[in-house]
């Protein structure tokens, strides 16, 4: 069985994001980029499936401008077998990403597709669910445990009240949550090996998908700033403040 994983290039989680002065977006020039953390978890899970003999091949797909190739290389260095880069400089929104991934999936025929639960830049949390809808496949979102058993899988999901387990038919879409696994670091020899692994280049046109954005960004602004308050010396002082100034207790 082939596993397909989606990997998105995003601003590194440790970077302090700044809104652009002209309020059109956030500053992306000279900012450290990385693989979306949820996608690292996806790649790790795919590789583990292969190591466990449940998958035969791991294909990493990224969509976006030329630098997305670096993100694919990272996945290859972690252990994915080959990459697919759908190159476009158009701003990609989740519905377009889902349509492009669907087109790739129709070519590749994977048995399972793993995407992140959420990209930490747009925080949309949509792509996997949309993709499942478009394909008419089952979806197991926010997965913290994945067990493949024959023609199906049992997936534990992180939900508001705790954990929920569902059974799904394969092929299916899985979206990763934080507790699914702890992604490995790529070793130096594997980083070298990854340079020789193939990356196929595709375009939205070749896939027959119109990636035009459906949501128009009117502006992007800083959130209201919270003022740092005061330090209190004693618990009694804290209680007094909460009772008499803030009046919250």
């Amino acid at each position: 069985m082939k596993v397909l994983v989606a990997v998105k290039r995003v601003i590194d989680a440790n970077v302090k994001v700044r809104v652009k002065a002209d309020n059109t977006g956030v500053e992306l020039t000279n900012v450290k980029m990385a693989m979306n953390p949820f996608d690292e978890i996806g790649v790790e899970e795919a590789i583990r499936l292969k190591e466990a003999g449940k998958a035969t091949e791991v294909v990493a797909v990224s969509l976006g401008g030329a630098p997305s190739q670096e993100t694919i290389r990272t996945a290859l260095a972690m252990g994915a077998d080959r990459g697919i880069h759908v190159q476009t400089d158009v701003e990609l929104q989740p519905l377009a990403v889902a349509k492009l991934l669907k087109a790739v999936i129709e070519k590749e025929q994977p048995g399972i597709v793993i995407v992140g639960k959420q990209a930490i830049d747009d925080d949309s949390n949509q792509t996997g669910q949309m993709l499942a809808g478009l394909l008419g496949w089952p979806q197991a979102t926010f997965a913290s445990k994945l067990n493949i058993e024959g023609e199906g899988a049992e997936v534990t999901r992180e939900v508001d009240g705790g954990l929920e387990t569902i059974r799904i038919k394969l092929p299916a879409i899985i979206t990763t949550d934080l507790r699914l696994n702890e992604p490995r670091y790529a070793s130096l020899p594997n980083i070298m090996k990854a340079k020789k692994k193939p990356i196929e280049a595709l375009t939205p046109e070749a896939l027959g998908v119109d990636p035009k954005p459906r949501l128009k960004t009117l502006k992007v602004v800083e959130p209201p700033k919270r003022q740092a308050g005061i330090k209190v010396k004693t618990v009694q002082e804290l209680v007094d403040k909460l009772r008499n100034d803030a009046k919250v207790i």
Partner: peptide, 22 residues
Amino acid sequence: DSFGKNVMPRVAALLDVAQVSD
């Protein structure tokens, strides 16, 4: 929440429309 996030993007895709999250 975990219910809406799970269901609504699937609905949006089936209707071929974008979703505005959160």
